[in-house]
């Protein structure tokens, strides 16, 4: 059963690493334009849920429906293609390719998706400017501050106009001020493009940028929306 109008729905996800269960019957759904915070203590399975939802890993059982397609039934190549075209990603750190300039980093998903270099870089520059880091375009990630780098990463996640953005502790390595700015820019941009955001965080102030939250505990996700 798919909730009406939902973009991405997971049902009864199970995933174990070795004998340790990371997900133990997790449910999840998100609508277009919605920002959902995935919260929970460390090791509760937040990131595993995100990875399953994004098709990065395949759950041991359960389904992940994106539109009418079940990610858990798709091949690695198909899931990769879907991630390239429909999903965007922001991680805590270590995500920018150190040799590429910031602009090239932002253009990377577009280019992986087959967009010509010139066009990809033009579009990327717009996003860099929208995230207030247009001036670092020719710099390499090692030469910019953490806040700038994270904005570049957000720009990269948004540049390909994804329908779902997966953000795993996107402000984890930033101070409050930079964290807030990044969250503001990320959520505004996502709402502006009607993209859904799956936001994994353990910080309540970051979760406060969401529309609702899901708490993962012991590998089970609880929807809190009904209580709001």
């Amino acid at each position: 059963m798919t909730p009406a109008g939902s973009l991405l729905t997971a049902r009864a996800l199970h995933k174990a690493y070795g004998s340790t269960p990371a997900l133990d019957g997790a449910d999840f759904s998100i609508h277009p334009g919605e920002v959902v915070a995935v919260m929970g203590p460390s090791g509760s399975g937040k990131s595993t849920l995100l990875h399953c939802l994004a098709g990065i890993i395949r759950p041991d059982s359960g389904s992940v429906l994106y539109g009418s397609r079940d990610l858990s039934q798709m091949s690695d190549a198909q899931r990769s293609a879907l991630r390239r075209s429909d999903f965007g990603f922001v991680f805590q750190f270590g995500q920018l390719v150190p040799e590429l300039t910031c602009l090239e980093n932002v253009a990377l998903p577009l280019r992986l998706n087959g967009v010509k270099r010139k066009e990809a870089e033009e579009r990327s520059l717009e996003w860099l400017e929208r995230l207030e880091v247009g001036e670092v375009r020719a710099k390499r990630p090692g030469e910019v501050s953490g806040g700038q780098g994270q904005r570049v990463a957000v720009a990269r996640a948004l540049a390909a106009r994804p329908r779902v953005i997966f953000a795993d502790e996107p402000t984890g390595a930033l101070d409050s001020l930079n964290g807030e700015r990044v969250m503001t820019l990320l959520t505004e941009a996502a709402r502006g493009t009607n993209a859904a955001v799956v936001l994994v965080t353990h910080e309540a102030r970051v979760a406060a940028y969401s529309d609702r939250e899901v708490v993962v505990r012991d590998g089970q996700a609880r929807e809190m929306a009904g209580l709001a």
Binding site: A54, G94, Q95, V97, N113
Partner: peptide, 16 residues
């Protein structure tokens, strides 16, 4: 390693 995982996350083909 980590960077590679990130690249995989956003759909980079192994061939690339």
């Amino acid at each position: 390693r980590r960077l590679l995982s990130v690249l995989v996350a956003f759909g980079t083909r192994r061939g690339t």
